[in-house]
Design a protein around this nucleic acid. Structure first.
Lengths: 352, 352
DNA sequence: CAAATTTTGGCAAACGATTGCCATGTGACG
DNA sequence: CGTCACATGGCAATCGTTTGCCAAAATTTG
């Protein structure tokens, strides 16, 4: 590792890095306080079981020694780690940062530690991640999971699992209302005189991609529009050129992309090729990510409550892991969050 | 929790969620294989210490039972969790997704689990996070830490710490080369005839913000430009209006924002107010985040190697936590990564 | 004042894995 | 055939915490 020190006042002094000092343990606290370890333990976790003044004393000593219970040891003893894992297909996709944020917040409120895993858009990697982390966490929130149903079932035998934007028999999940959302999109296009549109599909394994297409097609039928599906495309701006060029071979007057990132890539390519949006072609995305409001032209898109989805999923997981929880009846597995079409400048009247 | 089931085939069957099946332990494997637990342990971690055929047998039994060693128990025994924590000020800031991605990758390569913490732009929250997680991880990567030096020193006594875009005496860190970067920015502006610019500062505690301003001012001196600092502003698009309006009270022909997100907010506000960019005012940002290339106009910005920074930081941490590591001499604390000015359409000649 | 009852604190056994040490069993060599 | 070395597997302690159970002390009650 080549190291260069420049212009960094007070920083590079080549000091040796000291090994971390040993932490105080329950035993050292017990010794210092002159009580048994069990008393220290109870002073923390079972206040009623120990004399008021003893407790004060123990707590004071613990404070002085900077003691806090070792979570690893607690986990080993109790079998609960108070940690949940959030798995996303691609952490750099801005869509997921909303989910992450919501999950973070809910986890903090439930006093849970959150681990984030990146499945790299790969079911195999995702499954490996779940297996590797399985024993170290109390449960998983799998976002837009690409794992096949059987794999999910198998995983759910060993771990508690909550899904986001994915459903699978018997598993709790939080999903966006794509049925209503896609209807809003198609109604918007139809009202502007469009007669046909192209859907640029995302990854083949994407459950929400399938729901989106199913919803769009059903709504298209209702409104008498023609819908065609292209793809699959990787949902990155890099796929924009291929997707846009494919659309330009058709007579479609509107295009609905699997998500905003892809839609933005399409917008960039269309600009390059001199196709005017929305005059010649309307473009609609999904997700309303950071950037959808300031790309050019600003993108019409279906907004989901991603932050809420992340939060609800973690809450559901927390409820599932709480000691005597067995969800039945009202506490049933699927929660649907509303979606909302945000109309911006990338969509408009069909060309005549 | 109100639950609605609609349009979700095969999903909402109100099945009870079964409690997770018990995992196989080393004891159950030992019993099933007819050997002692120590043999099972060694079959996994010390192959030379156990007979070839016994080992095959044990491994086969373990496979059949779906056994994998419990990380919690291993952690308790060894004192190492093989987990590192990455703390960022705000996970929704796209700037950090690069760091996260790089850290993820490096962690996976080093066979480490990565935990992500969100400090919510708050030194107090950050310190609490470090304290809470301290015993559960082998070390921390603190990105753009807002903690004061003393707090960092204190924390480093109990945990191994590597900093990203922050330096503190004696602590290993990975930082972007702001000295060169800010010189590139100022040279760019000077070459276009600008005589003065405004810097829109970020959070007061931001170390990289201070470096940026220091570098800009030094470079401005060199080129005989006048530099003024405004702020602090929260680095979100929401601060754009206030920041832009402040700039418009001056005669500056260029503005350099603390980061791209703020710069984009400024661009939006300038468009609202009918100020043409770059004809009337040049705008430059830092970070080259997702969106900087497709905002309007595309943003001139200083690109950092965020992915590499994340990866290098985790690698450094891994090296630090490996048994006999004591960095000295060549292995010194500060690593500087190059930066590169990406010139786009938001900057140009000064108005005459 | 003795007996019954309630506090209160300590002992020791888990939790699941690792590892130093020891006791076998095997083969080789003189 | 005796001795030695080495390969192999088991015993048991350890990591830091929790918790069921018991005993001593303090309190109430008759």
């Amino acid at each position: 590792m080549a190291i260069v020190c420049q212009n960094l006042p007070d920083a590079c002094q080549h000091c040796p890095v000291p090994a971390p000092r040993r932490r105080a343990t329950i035993t050292s606290v017990a010794e210092a306080a002159g009580v048994a370890t069990s008393t220290v333990s109870r002073a923390f976790s079972n206040p009623g079981r120990v004399n008021h003044v003893t407790r004060e004393h123990v707590l004071a000593v613990a404070e002085r020694l900077g003691y806090s219970p070792n979570p690893t040891a607690q986990a080993l003893e109790s079998g609960r780690t108070n940690t949940v894992a959030l798995v996303v297909p691609d952490i750099t996709n801005p869509y997921f940062s909303g989910v992450v944020k919501g999950a973070e917040r809910a986890a903090a409120e439930a006093r849970l530690t959150l681990v984030i895993g990146d499945a790299q858009e790969n079911p195999v990697h995702e499954e490996r991640l779940v297996r590797r982390l399985g024993a170290a966490v109390d449960g998983f929130v799998l976002t837009a999971s690409r794992m096949p149903d059987e794999a999910l079932q198998r995983a759910s035998e060993l771990n508690r699992i909550v899904l986001v934007n994915r459903a699978s028999p018997g598993l709790t999940s939080v999903v966006a209302d794509f049925a209503s959302g896609t209807r809003q999109i198609v109604a918007h296009l139809a009202s502007h005189g469009h007669r046909s549109f192209v859907f640029l599909g995302g990854p083949a394994e994407s459950w929400s991609g399938a729901r989106r297409w199913a919803g769009l097609r059903a709504a298209a039928d209702e409104h008498g529009l023609e819908a065609t599906r292209f793809g699959p495309y990787t949902p990155t701006t890099a796929s924009g050129p291929a997707a846009a060029d494919a659309v330009l071979t058709t007579r479609a007057t509107a295009v609905v992309a699997h998500n905003d990132v892809l839609a933005i890539g399409v917008l960039q390519r269309l600009a390059e090729r001199g196709v005017r949006v929305p005059e010649q072609l309307s473009v609609v995305g999904f997700d309303d990510v950071f950037g959808a409001d300031f790309c050019h032209p600003p993108l019409t898109t279906l907004a989901e409550r991603t932050t809420e989805a992340g939060a609800r999923a973690v809450e559901a997981l927390a409820a599932l892991t709480r000691p005597g929880a067995t969800p039945t009846g009202d506490d049933a597995p699927v929660r649907v969050l509303p979606t909302q079409l945000v109309v911006r400048a990338s969509s408009g009247p069909a060309p005549t």
